[in-house]
C-alpha cells in the first residue's frame, strides 16, 4: 500500500482486506482494554486464515481476537497469557494451535526491538526457569541475561483514542498498553480510533504515536465492547 501523508480512512472491512492469508498480525490490547474490536470483528467475518497472532493474550471466548482463535483462523499464537480463553488452551492441547508463551515484559520489549531496529534485547526475566531453555544466556557485568530476539509483523491492528488526518495518535486510560509499541513493528499499521480530528486539533505535545507510523485509519463501531472501551 502506498504511503500517504493524509491517511486514508476506510471501513473496517476494507482495511482488514490488507491482512492476507498466512500473515503475522499484531493485535493491541490487554484483557478487555485497548483491543481494536471493530477491526477484529471485520477480520473474523473475512475468514482470512493461517494467521500468526501476536498479542498479549487471546481475550475471552467470543470476545475480541478470541473470535479469530475460535474460528480456526489462527495457526500460531505468540502471547504472555492465554488463561482467560479456554478455547486457545484446548486447541493447543489438541495440537491444533502452535503456542509461543513469552513473559509479558519480554513480549513488549521484543516488539520494541523489532520496531526500533535492535538485534535483540538482554533481560533478566526468566533466568533459571524453563523460559531460558533453548535460548542464549549471556553474562554481562556479573549478571545473567537471556538474549531475546525481535518480533515484527506484517500487519498491526491497534486501538487509539483520537487521530488527526496525519494519523498522529493519542490514547486513553489503560487502553494504551501494547498499542504504541506495535505501531512501530509492523509493515502495515491500521489504527481504530474514536474520532479523526483536523490537523492542529491534537497538540503535538500530546501525540504518543507519530502519524508517520500509521497507514490506515478506521473509526470504531458500536459493538458492545467497541462502544465501551
Amino acid at each position: 500500500m502506498p504511503t500517504h501523508i493524509i491517511k486514508p480512512v476506510m471501513s473496517a472491512e476494507e482495511a482488514v482486506s490488507y491482512v492476507k492469508t498466512g500473515s503475522s498480525v499484531m493485535v493491541g490490547g490487554f484483557n478487555y482494554g485497548g483491543i481494536p474490536y471493530t477491526l477484529i470483528d471485520a477480520l473474523a467475518e473475512s475468514k482470512t486464515g493461517d494467521l500468526h497472532l501476536i498479542s498479549n493474550d487471546t481475550a475471552y471466548e467470543g470476545v475480541g481476537h478470541g473470535k479469530l482463535v475460535q474460528n480456526g483462523q489462527v495457526r500460531k499464537v505468540t502471547a504472555s497469557h492465554v488463561g482467560l480463553n479456554k478455547v486457545t488452551q484446548s486447541l493447543f492441547n489438541e495440537g491444533k494451535l502452535e503456542l509461543e508463551l513469552v513473559p509479558q515484559g519480554t513480549f513488549v520489549e521484543r516488539i520494541r526491538a523489532g520496531g526500533f531496529g535492535l538485534g535483540g534485547i538482554l533481560t533478566p526475566t526468566g533466568v533459571g526457569t524453563v523460559h531460558e531453555e533453548g535460548k542464549q544466556v549471556l553474562e554481562v557485568q556479573g549478571k545473567r541475561y537471556i538474549l531475546e530476539l525481535p518480533l515484527k509483523a506484517d500487519v498491526a491492528l491497534i486501538r487509539g483514542y483520537r487521530a488527526d488526518r496525519y494519523g498522529n495518535l493519542v490514547y486513553f486510560g489503560t487502553n494504551r498498553n501494547f498499542n504504541p509499541a506495535m505501531a512501530t513493528a509492523a509493515s502495515l499499521v491500521i489504527a481504530e480510533v474514536d474520532a479523526i480530528l483536523e490537523l492542529g486539533d491534537i497538540d503535538p505535545n500530546d501525540v504518543v504515536t507519530p502519524g508517520i507510523l500509521v497507514d490506515i485509519l478506521v473509526l470504531k463501531g458500536d459493538s458492545h465492547y467497541a462502544s465501551r472501551t
Binding site: G83, L101, T125
Partner: peptide, 15 residues
C-alpha cells in the same frame, strides 16, 4: 493441566 502462560509474573519477580 491447561497452560495459562506466565503473564507478567516472571518480570515482576525478577525486577
Amino acid at each position: 493441566k491447561l497452560v495459562p502462560g506466565m503473564g507478567g509474573a516472571m518480570d515482576l519477580v525478577s525486577g
